[in-house]
Design a protein around this nucleic acid. Sequence first.
DNA 1: ATCAACAATATTGTCAACAATTGTGGTTTT
DNA 2: AAAACCACAATTGTTGACAATATTGTTGAT
Lengths: 220, 220
Amino acid sequence: MIENKDPIKSDNLTARLIEAIVNGEYPPGSKISEPELARVFDVSRGPLREAMMRVESLNLVERVPHVGARVVTLSLDKLVEIYAVREALEGMAANLACKYITDAEITVLEDLLNRHQSHIEQVDGASYFYQQGDFDFHYLIIQASKNHQLIALLCDQLYHLVRMYRYQSPRSHARPEKALYEHFAILNAIKARDPELAEMLMRRHIKNSRLLIENELLEE
Amino acid sequence: MIENKDPIKSDNLTARLIEAIVNGEYPPGSKISEPELARVFDVSRGPLREAMMRVESLNLVERVPHVGARVVTLSLDKLVEIYAVREALEGMAANLACKYITDAEITVLEDLLNRHQSHIEQVDGASYFYQQGDFDFHYLIIQASKNHQLIALLCDQLYHLVRMYRYQSPRSHARPEKALYEHFAILNAIKARDPELAEMLMRRHIKNSRLLIENELLEE
DNA sequence: ATCAACAATATTGTCAACAATTGTGGTTTT
DNA sequence: AAAACCACAATTGTTGACAATATTGTTGAT
């Protein structure tokens, strides 16, 4: 049993910082004070700054020289842009998944969607559980593409911002029945090894989410 | 006249490190020693490590805890993956450019391609100048998409690796006449505000480059 | 001679203090 | 009273030293 404790403060800090920012512990726009955070995480400013540099590379904070770092504010415009990129990249992922997905991965996806099905019938509506489940579905498809550059770009770069948004407005994405239906359709296309259809369905699925956001944007 | 000297060592270092790695000053696979680099760049290890963290986020170096960092070795497989992602993203950029490109940007692109035309007729072949020109063309199209997330992903993340590859094997991409012809076709589609055509042509253009790489891969 | 254990060396990870810059509050001036 | 200026405080940027870990070289045993 390899423990892989990873006792390196700087590395662990990065993950903890990401999580803290994504789940709103440090709200958008708020200033991040190095001395304060160093106290909170019980490290010195050295490793903390190294972690901050990485978090900055993820576009989760914005730094101004000699002034400091602030948590990014996720405007709806920015989010629409992100969803447009997701459309292209996850469409591509669905396409590739048709070729490279394994039977084992298909089984995992089927189990996941079946659990969602029964969960929705019981709870009847959006819930934290389903939110996470939606991410799981997309992550699995992305992984199944087997393109490591694509996986890194989506999972390590874009998805933190998407998760951050959903923490902020958890109910705006609430169209669980329709989304689940679309998930089933995508999975079916992948099982049928139909790349064009899978890509088209995935693009439309994400486009539908994007349209919800754009509607929010119009209501202001 | 704003000087914007940006005297922050950590920030400047990042750019210098990127350039040094991309142009092969530190060859792929070579170990990066913190004390040595600190001497070379005349800074202490603190800022250097901060820069290293950012360079690591760009996937230009790979770090192992307590062991050190090495410049990434760009395998052909990895490169093919990158080009596949470029196909999706730059296709999207060409598509969006049709809607958002300005007349001024079109003029810049036309001038650029005309210079390439006369340059190729004179020098008759691939040259460093044309290599840079190819990048300029793609950068301009990407910028014209006006999607900042897309721009950041391509220019700040992927393109460093692409440039690194071209420095390594500068002649494998030598198909300047055909590439220039394709560039003109893409620009014409954008000028005609035909998103589907522009996207298709851009995807095919990048796909052609990818096929060259895949052929190299088969020859081994 | 080959391999294993151990000591020495070098490198990475971390810390606390110092330097440089920015923001703030009060004072002065118009 | 409003604006400009100056000094103070706080924060960021940087440095050099210390601690922890990995690599190297050496010794000794089989």
